[in-house]
Write a protein that binds this DNA or RNA. Structure first.
Length: 568
DNA sequence: ATTGTATGGACCC
DNA sequence: TGGGTCCCCTACAA
């Protein structure tokens, strides 16, 4: 378990298990030296315990070696030395007369395992490790151990968890009223909010120019032309032409990026990012110097979970937030209109049911869904639907058959028909249950909707064949991909390239930092590497619908744009 | 017992 | 010293 994560970081086979060297040493030693195994090693020659068979499977993969002061785990990449195939060559084990080949092999394995464990000298290592534990040598690591505070009991805990105030005085065990965090999340008033920039002078000529650009460039968008799917070869060639530079990296929000949208304009390169802080950062890359092209707004008081330019009018930027509002940023009027508001709820995702962006489906964090019609006055929804899901992370509408939409919850993926939504609990048309951990997202493929890609915490990206919605949709491909982003990084979401029906884009934990593209059949297609320009994890990525432009957002508000040189 | 969630602190200019 | 950046642990609760 340890070795895997640690090996990821290193190219060479041999790495010291840092974790074991560190605080976890005690646990690891126990793990290796279970009483059963110790018995195996001491009575190596004679004991034919069942447990050694289980261990054998593991020793095929990992060799436990002991050195003077640490436990070294090394990947056994070469053919196993246990030699499963060369029968009857093990010294001392030749007299198997009268036994079936299976039993011969079994006995051979058992004896080899016993020899192997004897050769490890586990009891000696154990003694040495016990010494180490006694001494409790501080591990040699770059990072210093967090300094223990005097009033803490040894573990790292926040003042809040310790239930003390910052001066160290214990707070009453049960606060009579909830602690106000107004400073962090200033509540925003209902109704339209003026577009007031957080980082620049609102009355400057530059700001007026910015608004004009974002309002007018939208009209220059070319109509969606039915493009032919490029072959993987030419697609790859196009991706290879995409580069990143200092000019295409910039911090556009305070704090982690939760959502991103690329403006469909084919002339200007406009990127929008929604942050955990509730900010929305807008960046016109065509503008130089780059700091003059960035404007930051605060249309929400909590994380902006979902962000889309309106397909009907790209001068509208719709933003959804945990704060229970859906707003529409209108650049021509310089306001963030309120489209839908439910303060009791927390919105996780939305999509357009109608292509003209008049009706929307909004997924709530608590598992319910809302149908919103923007043509009716007011900011309440038409219908509130309780799904059988306990949580909803993403909703996505089928690109062709727009009555279908897919939701990704904690464990389940559901596909619904929007025509049959009623107030009572509704049943999904299809529900997928193969995911074993929480699901981050589920998206239909962009042109036909014949595929679904899901991102799951079990470190697998799955691609399903959704070409036939009426029956079960079969699993097509599973791609192993580290999706454990941990506590501080935004969760990954694999998304389709809107112009390439069969390729997905996903952030990566790999070093050097990169954004990866995979084919629906599981083949690796491309890695966006940025050298010094890309040195952090891009969790949220968006590709331009027609051009070769990729924007990746990290967890400190920075956007990284890869594009064709000719686009700059 | 397992699994999801929360949001702190070391390091680097 | 301090602000910016990025990390992938881990206590706690459901």
């Amino acid at each position: 378990k340890h070795s895997k994560s640690l090996l990821d970081k290193n190219s060479n086979n041999e790495v010291a298990c840092k974790k074991c060297k560190k605080a976890e040493i005690k646990k690891t030693c126990r793990r290796i030296l279970t009483p059963k195994m110790e018995a195996t090693s001491s009575k190596a020659e004679s004991s034919l315990q069942k447990s050694s068979l289980d261990v054998h499977a593991e020793s095929n993969k990992w060799q436990y070696k002991s050195t003077s002061d640490t436990v070294i785990l090394s990947a056994d990449t070469e053919s196993s030395q246990d030699g499963d195939s060369d029968e009857g060559t093990t010294p001392g084990m030749d007299d198997f007369s009268g036994l079936s080949p299976y039993e011969k092999k079994r006995l051979k394995n058992i004896s080899e395992n016993a020899n192997f464990f004897a050769s490890l000298q586990l009891s000696e290592s154990a003694a040495r490790l016990r010494e180490m534990i006694k001494k409790r040598q501080p591990p040699e690591s770059k990072r210093k151990k967090p300094k223990k505070k005097e009033n803490e009991t040894g573990c790292r805990r926040s003042m809040r968890l310790l239930k003390v105030n910052p001066s160290g005085v214990s707070l009453p065990a049960t606060p009579t009223q909830p602690i106000l965090v107004a400073d962090e999340n200033p509540l925003l008033p209902p109704g339209p909010l003026e577009m007031t920039s957080e980082n620049r002078d609102d009355n400057s000529e530059l700001f007026k120019g910015f608004l004009q650009t974002w309002a007018e460039v939208s009209k220059t968008r070319s109509k969606n032309t039915e493009k032919e799917l490029s072959s993987i070869k030419s697609y790859k060639a196009n991706l290879n032409g995409m580069i990143i530079s200092e000019d295409t990296v910039y911090k556009v929000t305070k704090g982690p990026i939760f959502s991103m949208a690329l403006h469909p304009s084919e002339i200007r390169t406009l990127v929008a990012a929604g942050a955990r802080s509730g900010q929305v950062g807008l960046w016109d890359l065509t503008h130089q110097p780059k700091e003059d092209g960035v404007y930051i707004f605060q249309p929400h008081s909590q994380p902006v979970s979902c962000l889309y330019f309106s397909p009907a009018n790209p001068a509208h930027l719709l933003s959804l937030s945990y704060d229970g509002t859906l707003r529409c940023g209108d650049f021509s009027r310089a306001v963030f209109e309120e489209v839908y508001r439910d303060e009791r709820s927390s919105f996780s995702s939305f999509d357009f049911l109608a292509e003209d962006a008049s009706t929307l489906i909004v997924g709530h964090w608590d598992g319910s869904m809302s149908l919103v019609d923007r043509r009716t006055p007011g900011t309440s929804c038409e219908k509130l639907i309780n799904s059988s899901l306990s949580k909803i992370r993403t909703v996505h509408v089928h690109p062709v058959h727009r009555q279908y939409f897919i939701t990704a919850g904690l464990r389940d993926i559901h596909i619904y028909d929007a025509r049959f939504l009623n107030r009572s609990r509704i049943k999904p048309l299809i529900s997928l249950t193969e995911h074993t951990k929480s699901i981050a997202s589920a998206y239909f493929s962009p042109l036909t909707g014949n595929r679904v890609v899901t991102t799951c915490a079990d470190c697998k990206l799955r691609i399903f064949d959704s070409s036939c919605i009426s029956s079960k949709i079969p699993l097509l491909t599973t791609i192993r991909h580290n999706t454990i982003t941990g506590r501080w990084l935004t969760r990954f979401q694999a998304v389709w390239d809107p112009k390439q029906e069969d390729c997905i884009i996903v952030g990566s934990m790999a070093h050097p930092r990169r954004v990866e593209i995979f084919h629906e059949r599981g083949k690796w297609v491309h890695s966006f590497l940025g050298g010094e320009c890309l040195s952090s994890v891009c969790s949220i990525n968006a590709m331009h619908p027609t051009r070769y432009i990729l924007a990746g957002g990290n967890s400190s508000g920075r956007i990284h744009v890869f594009m064709n040189e000719s686009c700059g």
